[in-house]
Nucleic acid binder design. Structure first.
Length: 271
DNA sequence: AGTGGCTCCTGAGCGC
DNA sequence: TGCGCTCAGGAGCCAC
């Protein structure tokens, strides 16, 4: 599923091609996923793309006339550049046409969303306004991290997954970060020592950066803007490996359900 | 106010 | 071979 590193990969791929392109129209087979409505997007026709930026797992495409197109891939979304005349891709739900190419939004589960809003209210409408810290910002240091989790209650994993704390972490990188840090996902955050919390901070940042370096984790659905797989799945220690031996100690990895998500950890390495 | 659980959705994988 | 069941889960929403 696309998390911060996957979305970052797509945005970096798209940026050089998309900036300066002209929006020509949108077509969809899932009307409920295009907001406020397909018809509403006609007001953006013939407008030029000024910039594209990631925020958490959201993609924001800034257009002329203070309009913003926002996309969220949710669980199974892909965003792939194609020529106008190329056939629809597998599970293609929505196509966003620009003058020189078309962006195909493929999404098995139809959870993905595309919005068009004015810059003055896009953050509120899309939920971006509720996002917490951006973990790749230069200002995101341990002091910031510590402050976020101070006075918070609940399991480490649950808090990492809440987008209002830190934006962009999903199930894969939450499990991996917990493994790096040697912390059990179900550990209560208030019981962590300062040293452990610092280790968790470093682990979160390095798990995300490793994902970006490897152009994302392609477990089942993810592909970059050119339709190519990432390679980070080859470097995962725990996610998706329940029942297999721990790569560090050989112990059988444990799989549980936590915060409603499949969760894998090593009972020996993660105290 | 905060939280747990339900909901959206469909393909893959499995047992029989 | 094919049917039906279970699982995967990001995030909004609602009941308590």
């Amino acid at each position: 599923m696309p998390e911060l590193p996957e979305v970052e990969t797509i945005v970096c791929d798209l940026k050089p091609v998309l900036v300066g392109a002209v929006f020509c129209g949108i077509k969809t087979e899932v009307r409920a996923c295009v907001l406020p409505s397909v018809e509403d997007f006609s007001k953006a026709e013939n407008l030029k793309v000024l910039d594209i930026k990631r925020r958490g797992k959201f993609i924001n495409i800034f257009l002329e006339k203070d309009l913003v197109m926002t996309l969220h891939l949710r669980m199974s979304g892909r965003l792939i550049m194609q020529g106008h005349d190329e056939a629809a891709l597998r599970f293609e739900r929505t196509r966003i046409d620009f003058d020189k190419f078309s962006l195909r939004f493929c999404d098995v589960r139809k959870f993905g969303r595309v919005w068009l809003n004015h810059v003055s209210d896009y953050e509120k409408v899309t939920g971006i306004a509720r996002l917490g810290a951006e973990p790749l910002d230069p200002g995101f240091d341990f002091q910031v991290f510590e402050k976020i989790f101070m006075k918070k209650k609940g399991s480490v994993k649950k808090l990492l997954l809440e987008q209002s704390n830190i934006a962009g972490i999903g199930n894969i990188y939450a499990d991996e970060a917990c493994f790096y840090a040697g912390i059990r996902p179900e550990a209560e955050i208030e019981n962590l020592s300062g040293k452990k919390l610092e280790k968790l901070f470093e682990s979160v940042v390095s798990a995300l950066n490793q994902g970006i370096r490897n152009r994302g984790t392609s477990i089942s659905d993810f592909a970059d803007a050119y339709g190519k797989m990432g390679s980070n799945q080859e470097l995962l220690y725990v996610y998706g490996r329940g029942g297999n031996p721990c790569m560090d100690c050989g112990e059988k990895l444990k799989k549980i359900k936590l915060a409603g998500r499949g969760t894998v950890y090593c009972e020996k390495c993660q105290a």
